[in-house]
Each structure stands twice: as C-alpha cells, then as structure tokens.
Measured scan of single mutants.
Amino acid sequence: LEELEQFARTFKQRRIKLGFTQGDVGLAMGKLYGNDFSQTTISRFEALNLSFKNMCKLKPLLEKWLNDAE
C-alpha cells in the first residue's frame, strides 16, 4: 500500500512536470493501450480514492504511460 501511495504522488508530480492534464493522460492511455480512462479516474488514482484492487490494476498502465511520455 505504501508503494502505491508513493507511486501516486510521484506520478502526479511527473505528470505535471511534463505538462499533461489528467484528461490528457486518460485520452492518451485510450489511444496507446486501448484502455479508456476518464479524467475522474486519473484524479481518483492520484488522490488514492480508488479501491486497492483498482489501484493495483491501474498502476502498471500508468507506469507504462509515464515511461512512454518521458
């Protein structure tokens, strides 16, 4: 759980530094990986307001997006 919290904080910082909005991330993930995510989902991930199971599902996709975006 602590690792997920740390990743969520780091993800938000890096996303902002790269100049992407939460909506940009959701749209890009849909185009790149075929998984559409709303701005609300990205927001809830960053705020740790998703279930642990959903956080675990999203983490690898967000890590991949972040690596591809950098």
Score class of each variant (00 low, 15 high):
I16E: 15
G19K: 07
L48F: 15
S38D: 15
N49Y: 03
E70P: 03
N49S: 13
W65P: 02
M55H: 05
R44P: 00
P60Y: 02
W65G: 01
F37T: 05
T40H: 05
R9T: 11
N67Y: 02
R15Y: 03
P60V: 11
E63A: 03
Q13C: 06
A8T: 09
L4N: 01
C56K: 14
F52H: 04
L58P: 01
K59L: 08
C56H: 08
K17L: 13
E70M: 08
L48R: 12
L58V: 13
A47S: 15
R14E: 05
E2M: 15
K59I: 13
E3W: 03
Q22W: 13
F37E: 03
G30C: 09
R15S: 00
A28G: 07
L1A: 07
F45P: 00
W65L: 03
S38Q: 10
M29S: 02
L61D: 13
N35E: 15
F7G: 02
D68V: 10
L32H: 06
N35V: 07
L62K: 00
Y33H: 13
L61S: 11
K17N: 14
A28C: 06
F52M: 07
I16W: 04
Q39P: 14
E2D: 15
L4K: 01
A28Q: 15
L48T: 06
L18A: 12
L32I: 10
L50E: 14
L32P: 04
F45A: 01
W65H: 02
L58N: 04
K53P: 09
Q13P: 03
G30M: 15
A69S: 10
P60W: 03
F52V: 11
S38R: 11
L32A: 13
V25S: 02
K59M: 09
L32Y: 13
A69T: 15
K17I: 08
R14A: 09
Q13A: 12
L48V: 14
S38N: 15
Q13R: 10
C56L: 14
E3T: 05
S43W: 10
Q22A: 13
A69Q: 15
L18T: 04
L27C: 09
I42D: 01
N54T: 14
Q13T: 13
S51I: 01
M29K: 00
Q6C: 03
K57Y: 07
R9Y: 07
K31L: 07
A8N: 02
R15H: 00
D24V: 05
E3M: 02
L4V: 08
S51H: 10
R14P: 00
E3L: 06
E5C: 08
G19F: 02
N49K: 13
L32S: 13
T41S: 09
R44Y: 11
V25C: 04
E3V: 08
L1V: 09
F37A: 05
G34M: 04
D24K: 04
L27P: 02
G34E: 15
E3Q: 13
N35Q: 07
K64H: 15
A69C: 12
E3H: 13
R15G: 00
A69F: 04
F37H: 07
K59W: 08
V25F: 02
G19M: 03
C56A: 12
L58Q: 04
A8G: 03
M29N: 01
R44V: 02
S43L: 08
L61I: 05
K12R: 05
E3N: 06
F11G: 01
Y33K: 09
T21W: 01
L18F: 11
F11R: 00
T40Q: 14
Q13H: 07
G26T: 12
L4A: 04
D36N: 09
L18Y: 05
Y33R: 05
V25W: 01
K31A: 12
L58A: 13
K57H: 06
S43V: 07
W65C: 03
R44Q: 15
L62S: 01
T21K: 05
Q6E: 10
L1C: 02
F52C: 09
Q6F: 07
A28I: 05
Q13D: 11
G30I: 08
S51R: 07
Q39K: 11
L50M: 10
M29H: 01
K64C: 06
N54I: 03
K12Q: 15
L27A: 15
D36W: 10
Y33I: 08
Q22H: 09
D24F: 05
L66G: 02
T10A: 11
E70R: 05
K57E: 10
T40D: 14
A28L: 08
L61W: 14
K64W: 03
K31E: 09
G30V: 10
L18P: 00
W65K: 01
L66A: 13
Q6T: 13
D24P: 00
D68E: 10
A47R: 07
D68P: 03
E70V: 11
W65M: 03
A69Y: 06
L58K: 07
P60C: 04
G30F: 13
R9A: 10
W65Y: 06
R44W: 03
P60N: 04
G26R: 05
D24Y: 07
A69P: 05
Q22G: 04
R14T: 14
T40W: 11
I16T: 14
L27S: 08
S38M: 07
A8R: 04
S51P: 13
K17W: 06
F20N: 02
F11D: 02
I42H: 00
E3C: 04
L48S: 14
G23W: 08
L61P: 11
Q13S: 13
R9G: 08
S38H: 04
G26A: 09
G30N: 14
K12A: 03
G34I: 03
Y33N: 05
Q39H: 06
T10R: 12
T21A: 05
F7D: 01
A8W: 02
T21Q: 04
L66S: 03
R44F: 04
K59P: 01
R15E: 00
V25P: 00
I42C: 02
L4E: 02
Q13M: 12
K31M: 05
T41D: 14
L27K: 15
K31D: 06
L50Q: 06
T41V: 14
E70W: 08
F7P: 00
E70L: 09
Q6A: 07
F20P: 00
D24Q: 13
T40I: 03
L61Q: 14
I16F: 05
R14K: 14
S51M: 03
N35I: 05
L61K: 14
S51L: 01
F37P: 03
R15T: 00
L50G: 06
T10M: 13
F11K: 00
N35R: 12
L66I: 14
Q22R: 06
V25T: 03
G19P: 00
A28D: 14
R44M: 13
K17A: 10
D36T: 15
N49I: 11
K53M: 09
E5I: 03
Q13N: 08
R14F: 05
N35G: 15
Q13V: 12
I16H: 05
W65E: 00
L1K: 06
N49D: 15
N49V: 07
T10F: 13
Q22M: 10
F7N: 02
D36P: 06
E5L: 07
F37R: 02
N54V: 14
F20E: 02
K53N: 03
P60K: 03
S38Y: 03
A8Q: 01
T21G: 06
F7A: 06
E70S: 15
F20T: 03
F45T: 00
Q39T: 15
M55K: 01
D24H: 09
L61V: 09
E46I: 00
A8F: 01
E2K: 12
K59Y: 15
E46N: 00
Q22C: 13
I16S: 08
C56M: 10
T10V: 11
A47P: 01
K64G: 11
L62V: 10
Q22K: 10
T21P: 02
A28P: 01
V25G: 00
I42F: 02
L4P: 02
D36L: 10
T41P: 04
T10K: 12
Q22N: 02
F20Q: 08
T10E: 14
L62I: 14
Q13G: 11
R44C: 09
E3A: 06
W65R: 01
N49T: 14
N35P: 12
D68N: 14
M29W: 02
F37D: 02
A28Y: 07
Q6Y: 09
L58R: 03
V25Q: 00
N49L: 11
M29T: 08
C56I: 07
F45L: 07
F11V: 03
F52A: 11
K53R: 12
Q39L: 10
L50R: 01
N54R: 13
N54A: 10
S43R: 12
C56D: 10
N49F: 04
C56N: 09
G19L: 03
L66Y: 10
K17G: 11
T40S: 14
K17Q: 07
A47Q: 14
E70D: 15
L1M: 08
Y33A: 09
T21I: 01
D36C: 06
V25K: 01
R44T: 12
G19A: 03
F37Y: 10
L48P: 02
E46H: 00
L4Y: 02
K53T: 15
L50D: 07
R9S: 10
P60A: 06
S38T: 13
Q22D: 04
K12W: 03
K57G: 13
A69G: 06
K17R: 13
D68S: 09
L18H: 10
F52L: 12
L62A: 05
L58S: 04
E5M: 15
M29P: 01
K12N: 01
K59F: 05
L27Y: 14
A47K: 10
G23Y: 04
L62G: 01
Q13Y: 05
L48K: 15
F45H: 00
K57A: 09
G19W: 00
T21D: 05
A47T: 14
